[in-house]
Design a protein around this nucleic acid. Structure first.
Length: 259
DNA sequence: ATGGCTTTAAAATAAAGA
């Protein structure tokens, strides 16, 4: 059986819990990485996941951000939370674990809007801190994947409208260059590789009928280390979940890996 | 659109998101 690793920016684990549980039961990923849980650690509904067979680790904070890693039938072993290089940064955006023979990194990369400005500067610094950590993981030569909400539109074919997004932090040249450096370092964009023509979205805004008009873009990514890229079988987006009642504004993404 | 939704926190608005 191939291993299935999924990622879902759920936009609030309290508001989304029924949707999240049904997605887990219907698609049954081996490993599920969550972003924007938007809860403090003590509010994380671990018991609800245990009931359906998932063990979890999580890194929360009050009100916004927050990431978690769930695994089917076994507990992820935490390796690191948070990125080095900026001790005053308390945002809960990075969680790294060993599970099922993989190094799994769950990220919620800063949005960076408005740009220019301090939030955009923080985004770019965070991307360089991430790159340093990913280089260290690469040097360990372990099968690894870094999956989650990158808040980067890699190419023009990854958005419904280049014009509408032109001033957005998600597709500034600096954001794209920083993302491209990760690929140049040897990481493989699994979903991009399986959809070379573009036109695949993972996010649709709540506003202006974006979902109904299919006005989306691709910002949730799964990057595979060279050791793991050889095992990539397929990759995709669970698009239909964006159309359900009380949906997140993101759809889940996933990869399957040969044993 | 300086934001047309949505969530959280918390008690009416405000921050944050992308």
């Amino acid at each position: 059986m191939p291993l299935k690793v999924a990622s879902f920016n759920i936009n609030g684990i309290k508001a989304r819990l029924p949707r999240l549980l049904e997605w887990l039961e219907e698609t049954r990923p081996s490993i599920a990485c969550l972003q924007e849980i938007k809860t403090q650690d003590e509010g994380f509904p671990a018991a609800e996941f245990e009931k359906i067979g998932y063990h979890a680790i999580w890194h929360g904070q009050k009100g916004f951000n927050g990431v978690a890693i769930l695994a089917d039938g076994q507990a992820p072993v935490e390796v690191q939370r948070g990125l080095a290089g900026e001790p005053e940064d308390e945002h809960a955006r990075y969680l790294e674990a060993d599970v099922m023979g993989l190094r799994v990194v769950c990220i919620y990369l800063p949005n960076g809007n408005p740009q220019p400005g301090p939030k955009f500067d923080y985004k770019l610094r965070w991307m360089e801190r991430l790159r340093a950590r990913m280089a260290a993981i690469s040097a360990q030569e372990v099968p690894a994947l870094v999956i989650g909400d990158y808040n980067v539109i890699p190419k023009d074919s990854d958005t419904y409208s280049v014009k509408a997004m032109a001033d957005d932090a998600l597709m500034q040249p600096q954001s794209r260059d920083a993302y491209q450096r990760l690929l140049n370092d040897g990481w493989t964009d699994a979903i991009g590789l399986h959809n070379p023509q573009g036109g695949v979205w993972t996010y649709w805004d709540y506003q202006a009928g974006a979902w109904q008009r299919d006005h989306g873009f691709r910002i949730d990514h799964a990057l595979l280390s060279p050791e793991l890229a050889d095992r990539l079988e397929s990759a995709g987006v669970d698009k239909a979940y964006r159309g359900r009642e009380k949906a997140s504004d993101h759809a889940p993404v996933w990869v399957t890996l040969r044993a």
